[in-house]
Amino acid sequence: MSFNISVSPHIRLPFDAKSIMWVVVLALLFPAAAGVYFFGLPALVLIVFTTLVAVITEAVCQWLAKRPITAADGSAVVTGLLLALILPPTFPLWMAAIGAVFAIGIVKVLFGGLGFNIFNPALAARAFLLASWPVAMTTWIRPFDAVTTATPLFLVNKMHQAAPGYWDLFIGNRAGSLGETSVLAILIGALVLLLTRVIDWPAPAAFIGSVALFSWLLGHDPWFAIMSGGLMIGAFFMATDYVTAPVTTKGRFIFGLGCGIMTVLIRYFGGFPEGVNYSILFMNILTPLIDRYARPKLFGGR
């Protein structure tokens, strides 16, 4: 039996850290299933393989550091699964393995393990892979027939071509990362997390809302802006991370707003077609600062 000692107020949730992780895994299975449906068997292989490598890496690192092995607590599963979902569907397995090792070994374990990492491990690994193998990381395929093509964001914002229809964007019938394409599947997963109160609304709402608002102000189609790229999966599954995002409602709102502004800046004024990845990583750095600014006032304090 273990006793947890902490100062008040105590927030009570129906779950402990371990079962929260498995709820997140459950929610992630919806976009994962959509990815397998659209991109076929290679997508399934990539998901299973990346997740396995992430879990094994965590176990090996903890064994090397002579610490208790907690690789089965679900957090490594979440990282591996998330990483696979933000990779191109045909990404080479050995590169994905290096990405998973980097995510767990460098970004998570070296910074102290679960709860101490500064950056979202999956996103940091994606940035690492993008800088390492830019060609493989930007080779996209069309759903079903696997013909190489560009993503809608790239075509519209950098090549000034017509956007695909809203329905295709919504169900996920477009080129993109494995699990980012289907807005529908991500929303179902997000609904699971919101209903079980594993995540709350401020960060995703501020993130998606600000991208829509600023896109509209800059003369772009706001519906296209929020349904393309990795915005949905980033807003619901990464900007809500317990470890790397702020803890208070106000802080989470600021976090989401910052992510939205950075995303818009990168998409319309930067060299990359998509900016969700870097915007969340950038805001991860600011999280301690936001937490300090948005700290709730002590009762009776000024």
Binding site: I98, I106, F128, A131, S132, W133, P134, V135
Partner: peptide, 16 residues
């Protein structure tokens, strides 16, 4: 060289 991890010759590679 197509197999090599380009990040290592970029600034982050120096820090790592």
């Amino acid at each position: 060289p197509a197999v090599a991890a380009t990040i290592m010759v970029l600034p982050p590679g120096a820090f790592i």
